[in-house]
Every structure is written in C-alpha cells, then in structure tokens.
Amino acid sequence: MGPRTQDQTEILIDGLSFVLAASVDLDAVQREVERAIETPGQFVRFTAAGNRRVRVLITPTSRVTFVTEDVAVSSSDPVMSRNDEGDWDFL
C-alpha cells in the first residue's frame, strides 16, 4: 500500500496565501467568491489551516486563485501554514 494522501487546497487572494482547513467545503467558498465579485465589495469567510478564521474583502478587482494538490501525509508529518508575515509556520 502506498503512502496515505489527502487533498490540500491553497487559496491566493491578491497575493496573500492561505491553506484551507481540511474541513472547509471548497465548492462553497468558491461560490461565495463568485458571488462577491459581482458586488462592489463583500466579505468572504473561511477557516484556514490551524483553525485560523479568515475574513477577506472581495471586490470586482480582486484576484483569487485556488490550487489543490494531492499531498502525502502520515501521523508524524508536520502541517504547515503561512503566517501574517508570509513565513511558513509548523502547526
């Protein structure tokens, strides 16, 4: 049996990067972003890795990218997330 894997999704919003918590419904966040860009500005809320609650203002000029990759995990693998300064933290 090969290594255990799971999807990990990173969302980049105007250059800021967040790794979504595994429990987040990616399709729901994507729909919220799509609705928000049709308004003058609307907050979108989601949970990032490390149980960080994020609220970001999305406008028609916001640039949002979702990147999902299959990553190998084991019980001993550290989980990483970017902090507010853009550096990686172990969770």
Results as ranks from 00 to 15, higher is better:
38 E>T: 11
88 W>A: 08
56 V>D: 08
3 P>H: 02
89 D>W: 05
62 S>Q: 11
71 V>I: 14
79 V>G: 08
55 R>E: 15
77 D>E: 09
16 L>Y: 10
48 A>V: 00
18 F>Q: 15
6 Q>H: 06
86 G>L: 02
54 V>T: 03
30 Q>C: 08
8 Q>A: 11
61 T>D: 15
41 G>P: 05
12 L>E: 13
68 T>E: 06
2 G>T: 12
29 V>M: 07
80 M>T: 01
72 A>P: 04
23 S>I: 04
80 M>K: 09
27 D>V: 00
41 G>D: 07
56 V>L: 02
37 I>F: 10
76 S>H: 02
75 S>L: 09
29 V>D: 06
23 S>A: 15
40 P>S: 07
55 R>H: 06
4 R>T: 15
52 R>N: 08
26 L>T: 13
4 R>V: 08
58 I>E: 02
32 E>V: 00
72 A>L: 05
76 S>N: 04
39 T>R: 13
14 D>R: 04
74 S>E: 01
84 D>G: 11
82 R>T: 03
1 M>I: 02
58 I>Y: 05
51 N>K: 11
49 A>L: 12
20 L>T: 10
16 L>I: 14
28 A>R: 02
60 P>A: 02
57 L>I: 06
65 T>G: 07
64 V>D: 06
38 E>C: 04
67 V>I: 15
6 Q>L: 08
11 I>C: 02
36 A>P: 05
2 G>C: 03
4 R>S: 05
46 F>T: 08
34 E>P: 00
72 A>M: 07
20 L>Q: 07
38 E>M: 08
31 R>Q: 11
16 L>G: 04
22 A>H: 11
4 R>G: 03
74 S>N: 13
86 G>D: 05
84 D>A: 13
7 D>L: 06
91 L>A: 00
75 S>K: 07
70 D>Q: 15
17 S>N: 08
4 R>A: 13
86 G>F: 05
44 V>Y: 07
25 D>N: 14
73 V>C: 02
53 R>E: 15
70 D>S: 06
65 T>D: 15
75 S>W: 00
11 I>P: 01
46 F>C: 09
18 F>G: 14
61 T>C: 00
42 Q>P: 01
29 V>S: 09
57 L>W: 02
35 R>W: 08
